[in-house]
């Protein structure tokens, strides 16, 4: 699953067209567009709206182990050595209001230049607002990172920023923004391909018959939640070693234990039995 976040609809438009995303009306608080395993959300400008939108979308997902999230948007550049229309992968995000930094793990083998980005609460119209910061500036990235990293690991988040101005933002129009993003679409598309191709670790599961054994033992011995976790780990190791769950486990369930201490004794013996296989 790939989630794309943009602040503005005009930033999202080339991506919506490229991936033929359709508006999903089941989302009522933000504009959300989806197709297959891509979901795009438009938050509106600013850190707070971004945090709320990303949280809103991620909190609705039941399994995030295979999720990846990408922020695409325009950014100002403090130096003219960063070309207008150039796309950067962000390797550090500085939240200028708190001083906190966020670091996405750059683990894909990409060919974009990288840069540091600072998020400000107001439009950065000249270097006096940007202060000492050299690099990219925007108004959303820190909110994006704070929300995304609440749900995901740093290897699951990516930010791609396209230089739209050199702190002379007043000339920018919505159409102009769309044109900037559209101009970099081949690079953004390539980045999306790389992100999608990155393999994330899957959480291991026991085959169905072995899961059923856990359920039967849990019910039979009235196991606590902690004991269930212990049993799952022990059975997983046992299955890994011998390729099966030995059938004699049922004898540890009969007769049903009549006290917690008897249940605990029986449980320890059962674990020893599985560990000995």
């Amino acid at each position: 699953m790939l989630i794309i976040h943009t602040a503005l609809l005009c930033e999202a438009r080339p991506l919506i067209d490229r991936y033929r995303l359709k508006k999903d009306f089941s989302f009522t608080k933000f504009d959300v567009f989806t197709k297959d395993d891509i979901t795009l959300i438009v938050s509106g400008i600013g850190r707070l709206k971004t945090t709320v939108a990303v949280t809103y979308l991620l909190a609705k997902q039941s399994d995030l182990s295979q999720a990846k999230i990408l922020n695409v948007g325009i950014a100002g550049a403090t130096s003219r050595q960063f070309d207008f229309g150039q796309t950067f992968l962000v390797n550090q995000i500085i939240d200028t209001s708190t001083g906190r930094c966020y670091y996405p793990d750059v683990l894909i083998n990409h060919d974009l230049p990288e840069n540091t980005l600072a998020t400000f609460d107001k439009i950065v119209e000249d270097q006096s607002v940007a202060g000492d910061h050299q690099g990219l500036v925007d108004m959303e990235a820190a909110g994006f990172a704070a929300a995304a990293l609440t749900f995901l690991g740093p290897h699951q988040i990516t930010l791609a920023k396209i230089v739209s101005d050199h702190l002379d933002i007043d000339h920018l129009s919505a159409d102009g923004v769309t044109e900037i993003v559209a101009g970099e679409l081949p690079r953004i598309t390539r980045l999306i391909e790389l992100i999608q191709a990155q393999k994330l670790p899957e959480s291991p599961n026991l085959p169905q018959p072995e899961q059923a054994v856990i359920d039967k033992i849990t019910t039979g011995l009235k196991l606590t939640v902690a004991q269930q976790a212990q049993l799952r780990n022990t059975l997983f190791d046992c299955h890994l070693r011998s390729g099966e769950i030995p059938p004699e486990w049922e004898q540890y369930l009969k007769p049903a234990p009549d006290s917690k201490s008897e249940r605990n004794r029986r449980f320890v013996r059962l674990l020893d039995y599985f560990r000995g296989q």
């Binding site: 930094c101 670091y103 690991g153 670790p201």
Partner: peptide, 14 residues
């Protein structure tokens, strides 16, 4: 520490 001790890192991917 801000970089090294981040939560939810994936050791094997890294």
């Amino acid at each position: 520490r801000h970089f090294f001790n981040r939560p939810n890192q994936d050791y094997n991917l890294q």
